[in-house]
Design a binder for these strands. Structure first.
Lengths: 269, 269
DNA sequence: ACTATTTATTACCCATGGGTAATATACGGG
DNA sequence: CCCGTATATTACCCATGGGTAATAAATAGT
């Protein structure tokens, strides 16, 4: 397993009907973990909120203490995935190297992300299931991701590390291939996420690299070991989910687990 | 536009409530055209049979004269796409050339197919919406498609036209990129399907080609002008839809438009 | 302990949409 | 001209599942 993508803690904080009392955010995230798993396993429309609740040893209405509706749960799953991508891009952009180097770094990171649940939610969920407002948020974010790929390619062409090509189409080709990982990769298979990621990074960038990198150049440098603090604190409230109104009741747990992002609260009261 | 993928005849054979009377198969196909469009536009679950019917100037129960249920319509949409893919593979395999040549030919054809409605249905629809039986059919067919890519790559390695690599992962990379076309391509955009196909064919195979093919080698040979008879007759009853039982009432139109494949009939009576 | 607040439960509502039954309208052949 | 068949239509049924109301159990603060 990888340190950057923690093993997703598959157990429910709700013990079958006993001493319950744990941090709210922890429960919220447990709901999301159960939801993303079910949505991936069964598909968003086949997975019911009863299913989600059952997997957590609670009942459906309890979910509404944390979320306003099914589509918001979907959005928040997507949103976590998006934050992870954004970290990949930020790390890559912060580092040094040619355009090609950065393209490769991003490719490795992105590929590996696609082997995780929240990564998959970026490409397996249907935007049309979201509310108008959230859909726009997602679309904007997706464009930003696409931009990162294109920018690296373009800068690679500029600095001579990448063959001249249409950055738009090249980005589509690479990102498409990576996105597809989210459709076929199964954690239990013969390939590990890491292996797939590294292979794809080479395979996909070799076609446009000016110097064919046969032996691995991006091997050990893949995980920079930085930005790997224990709990990667989600920065800011990216894609906040407050549906229409900006009302954000912070009624409780003002200091809820130091640096834990304050995501949109469930149900207004 | 392309000759191999006819302009999909978007009009309904049901005039708003008037002189109706046309061949049954024509109507069946009109249903599928309307359905695939709606399923792609709105997604399978959001598109209702009422929507499909309305677009054809009929009402929902009329659809049940041609199909046994919504999931069968979905399957048949998929099935048409699959037949088109199979033709691509058959044509490619029949032709001559190195493994790389064949890989490129298939890539071009497949890419272009991904810009059409029935092509998209291969990658945009969720297998889990199908009946158990149909799902297995589709899964088998998908494996066959994957096999074609792998085989071409493997034979390319064997004949020296392709660099040594893992055929499985290379096929995933290429096919993934192509499949993704079905998610982003919009017919009205700046790129034509043909342009995308040719660009992708080069971009995707360059990485594993032993001789970097800068200038186009697969340009005009893309459309072999053969196998382009007026109405491409669907061969055989691939993936026949008779749900569980093998009962296939051929009660009528024994000679229904010469060579028109006899697909599964709607509703048994 | 008592009370306010949070968080869960049980029991319900009801819109949606796939599917069906009964029936009407057209066509085609004798 | 009438009847059988194919093909529509109208009017339903009803399972599903998201969402809500009323209420009960747990917790924290004083």
């Amino acid at each position: 397993m990888d340190a950057r993508f923690p093993p997703s803690n598959t157990e429910s904080p709700w013990l079958p009907f006993e001493s319950r009392r744990r941090a709210r955010d922890e429960k919220r995230e447990a709901v999301l973990r159960a939801a993303v798993q079910l949505f991936l396993e069964q598909g968003y429309h086949r997975a019911t909120l009863n299913d989600v609740a059952k997997r957590l040893n609670i009942t459906k209405p309890a979910l509404y203490n944390y979320f306003r509706g099914k589509d918001e749960i979907l959005f928040e799953c997507w949103s976590i995935g998006h934050e992870l991508v954004d970290e990949c891009i930020a790390e890559t952009s912060a580092g040094a190297g040619s355009g090609l180097d950065k393209l490769r770094k991003l490719t490795v990171r992105y590929a590996e992300l696609m082997t995780t649940d929240y990564g998959k939610s970026l490409v397996r969920f249907d935007l049309r299931d979201l509310s108008e407002h959230n859909r726009k948020t997602v679309q904007t974010a997706k464009r930003r991701i696409d931009r990162a790929f294109r920018d690296y390619i373009a800068s690679g062409i500029a600095d001579g590390s990448v063959k001249p090509c249409d950055p738009k189409l090249a980005a589509f080709a690479i990102a498409g291939s990576l996105n597809w990982i989210g459709h076929w990769f199964q954690p239990g298979g013969e390939l590990t996420g890491r292996a797939v990621a590294e292979e794809f990074a080479i395979r996909l960038t070799d076609g446009i690299a000016k110097t064919t990198t046969r032996t691995t150049s991006t091997r050990k440098a893949a995980v920079p070991a930085a930005a790997k603090a224990d709990k990667p604190p989600r920065k800011g409230n990216v894609g906040n989910a407050s549906r229409e109104d900006g009302s954000e009741h912070h009624t409780r747990t003002a200091a809820g687990a130091a640096g834990q992002s304050k995501r949109a609260r469930g149900r207004l009261r």
